[in-house]
């Protein structure tokens, strides 16, 4: 739930990166952090296992311009993608304003993508949110693997698997190389702000 501070003229929104384990959520935040670290004071916070898997969340504050004179402060979070961490994954979704769904383009991850999306739908229901009502952007990640000859899913079949009903904006990307990472997050923020814009005085 976004917080509008009329005193400091600031809007805080919570954007959460969701998707299957090892899909590249943390890599997205790491790339964003590498691009903005010179102009922010805070560090990226990661609560993770020794093997670098997300255990609770990653967190990175991201400031992006202003609307109607209000500074927009977006709090970026990732959830743990591993199936067994649903308790913490659910907690991170509390108060979510927008979602980036990071899908893995590797052929053998197809089921994982679908399961992760179903799990997201369930977890949002817990907070009385219908996924169709929440600002959402799909990111089809790891497209760079194609250049290494690793078989990847084509965009049409990923759209059909995940986005046939939701019809959300989608991007192909490579979080590892940074391709389309910033456009993904910018799009997610801009659609998240659509509903909030009108409430600013």
């Amino acid at each position: 739930m976004a917080f509008i501070n009329t005193k400091t003229k600031e809007v805080q929104v919570k954007l959460v990166f969701v998707g299957p384990g090892r899909g590249g959520k943390t890599t997205n935040l790491e790339y964003i952090f590498s691009r903005i670290r010179h102009r922010i004071e805070s560090d990226m916070v990661s609560i993770k296992t020794q093997g670098d898997r997300t255990l609770f969340f990653d967190f990175l504050p991201f400031e992006l311009g202003a609307i109607k004179g209000y500074n927009v402060k977006t709090q970026l979070y990732t959830v743990p993608g591993q199936v067994k961490y649903n308790a913490t994954r659910k907690l991170v979704l509390k108060g979510v304003d927008g979602i980036v769904f990071v899908a893995d383009s590797m052929v053998d991850r197809r089921e994982n993508n679908i399961n992760a999306l179903n799990n997201l739908t369930e977890n949002l229901k817990f907070y009385d949110i219908d996924i169709a009502d929440l600002p959402l952007v799909f990111q089809y990640n790891k497209r760079d693997l194609a250049t290494e000859g690793i078989p990847i899913l084509d965009v049409e079949s990923m759209e059909k698997d995940l986005n046939a009903q939701l019809k959300a904006p989608s991007f192909t990307a490579s979080a590892l190389k940074g391709d389309n990472v910033i456009p993904t997050v910018k799009k997610a923020i801009s659609i998240t702000l659509v509903g909030i814009r009108d409430k600013l005085l």
């Binding site: 739930m1 976004a2 509008i4 009329t6 509903g195």
Partner: peptide, 12 residues
């Protein structure tokens, strides 16, 4: 969904 606190509330 969002909520607003106004200047008076925040001052308080």
């Amino acid at each position: 969904m969002s909520y607003i606190l106004d200047q008076e509330q925040l001052d308080g």
